[in-house]
Design a binder for these strands. Structure first.
Length: 470
RNA sequence: GCUCCCUUCGUCUAGCGGUCCAGGACGCGGCCCUCUCACGGCUGAAACACGAGUUCGAUUCUCGUAGGGAGCGCCA
């Protein structure tokens, strides 16, 4: 039997990493079974839903390349269908009109809580005969009174709850608009969803939904409730933990491959394997292997994976992602080395693409002054000779490649009878204005010949002036 | 308050009754490499929440306790 999964976010914000992980699981489960993956936007709450949020979700899905086979469907486009099913349930007396005021409901809940009971609707309108003319009623689903509801959750195992814990939930508001627990069921039935993967905050909704499936005479799908994601402090992930929206990770310099790999390993594993290509994820992932425990988000591990992907993916591919950050930081890739070359050098030195762009700016535009500490330490009178010597040597190099540049620096040190550091460090400060940069041959290579020689001239002049004032 | 759910190193996890004085990864410490920062190599510290059972034998099964989470809406 083929599998149909669906990701059904409500557009009330960006695509949250927890949601992204759920979407990934849905996607993987469908792909590994050659099934179908549907995207459905649950926008029945007109107050909180927005166009921007829909777009944010679509953008997030696309950035992560979680392509779906159907959709996006919008629940707001299906109101006629929900109304039709509501009428049907009403006609079958599986649902009824309720005229209770919100005030009455609230008072009742408070009293129940005070008595140590779980607040539930008391069924007051179930058999009500009089019909208040001036009140627009809601529609309530008539939940079974007796028995238990249980299901075998694909990640949690057997879960069971007594119907006596449930009450008659509202499925349509006075204006006729449907509510969540009703629309999901209608949609999942209509769309033939066979595997419902969602956050475990929905476990408590599941028995109510199962009762609706039954009232509709529909087959039950399999349910899989995945644990949520916690912040690094163990508390529920929220804005104060920093990035929670998927696109924020793009902005912060993460590759989609890294985020996906990180998310799939959060609560799931395949032996000791840490790195998974998309094909490997599809091959090995099984929703039944997902852990039951909520997992804390660890940015440091994400960083490690991100660097791994920056180093191992084709440099040209990483360069395309890097280009976005260049634009964002106002850097012009035309004014320096090819981005792929930059990636090949910088990937092992930084954790994110944003950081890569930041530390690489010096190869694309001139800096105003030497960093004081670095200049003080390395651009001293004793550095003049090595700098002059390497300048002379470099000026003669035609083939400006790391190999040749390395030999030039090394030979200069040998000629002067000093160690590499005596030549490389002043040179590094001359080229970058700082004492931290890639290996000196790579730094020269990326800086390019004209710019390198020009900056050395500036540094030599700086040393000269400084010597004069000392 | 009530219902449901969860519990292995700081974090993500392996473990599906003996192979575990508990393995891997991130992070952290040390050493090595070294022109800086990194990368890499080697190495170290670090966990079965607690208590009863079941069993010849429990990290693994059962039940309690403690701690944590979620839900109890005319939100999704």
């Amino acid at each position: 039997m083929s599998v149909t999964t669906r990701f059904a976010p409500s557009p009330t914000g960006f695509l949250h990493v927890g949601g992204a992980r759920t979407a990934l699981f849905c996607y993987l489960q469908a792909r590994s079974a050659a099934g179908k993956f549907i995207l459905r936007i649950e926008d029945t709450d007109l107050e909180r839903s927005s166009e921007e949020s829909v777009q944010a979700i679509l953008d997030g899905m696309r950035w992560l390349a979680l392509d779906y086979d159907e959709g996006p469907y919008y629940q707001t486009h299906r109101f006629d269908r929900y109304a039709e099913v509501t009428r049907q349930l009403l006609a079958e007396r599986r649902a009824y009109h309720c005229y209770c005021s919100k005030d009455r409901l609230e008072v009742m809940r408070e009293q129940q809580m005070q008595q140590g009971l779980k607040p539930r609707y008391d069924g007051f309108c179930r058999e009500r005969q009089d019909i208040p003319a001036d009140i627009k009623p809601v529609v309530r689903f008539r939940n079974p009174d007796a028995g238990d509801v249980s299901w075998d959750d694909a990640v949690r195992g057997q879960i069971s709850i007594s119907n006596s814990e449930l009450d008659d939930l509202v499925i349509a508001r006075p204006d006729g608009s449907p509510t969540y627990n009703f629309t999901v069921v209608v949609d999942d039935v209509d769309m033939a969803v066979s595997l419902v993967i969602r956050g475990d905050d929905h476990i408590n909704n599941t028995p109510r939904q199962i009762n609706i499936y039954r009232a509709l005479g529909a087959d039950l799908p399999q349910f899989a409730h995945v644990p949520m994601i916690l912040g690094d402090d163990g508390a529920r992930l929220s804005k104060r933990h920093g990035a929670v929206g998927v696109m924020q990770y793009r902005d912060d310099g993460y590759l989609p491959e890294a985020l996906l790999n990180y998310l799939v390993r959060l609560g799931w594993s395949h032996g000791d394997q840490e790195v998974f290509s998309r094909a490997e994820m599809i091959e090995h992932f099984d929703i039944r292997d997902v852990n039951r425990k909520a997992a804390a988000f660890d940015t440091q591990k994400l960083d490690w994976l991100n660097q791994h992907y920056m180093r191992t993916m084709p440099a040209a591919e990483v360069a395309e992602h890097l280009r976005w950050h260049f634009d964002h930081q106002g850097l012009d890739p035309q004014q320096g080395p090819a981005l792929a070359d930059l990636v090949s050098v910088q990937a092992e030195r930084v954790k994110t693409l944003r950081e890569m762009a930041e530390v690489s700016a010096v190869f694309y535009r001139d800096f105003d002054e030497f960093e004081p500490g670095a200049a003080k330490k390395h651009l001293r009178l004793v550095a003049a000779e090595p700098l002059q010597a390497i300048h002379t040597k470099l000026a003669e190099i035609e083939n400006w490649q790391p190999q040749q540049l390395h030999e030039a620096v090394q030979q200069t040190a040998v000629d002067l009878g000093v160690n590499m550091g005596k030549v490389a460090q002043p040179l590094r400060v001359a080229l970058t204005g700082t004492s931290v940069s890639p290996a000196i041959d790579k730094t020269l290579w990326l800086t390019g010949k004209p710019r390198s020689l020009a900056r050395m001239d500036v540094a030599l002049k700086y040393i000269e002036q400084r010597g004069a004032t000392e």
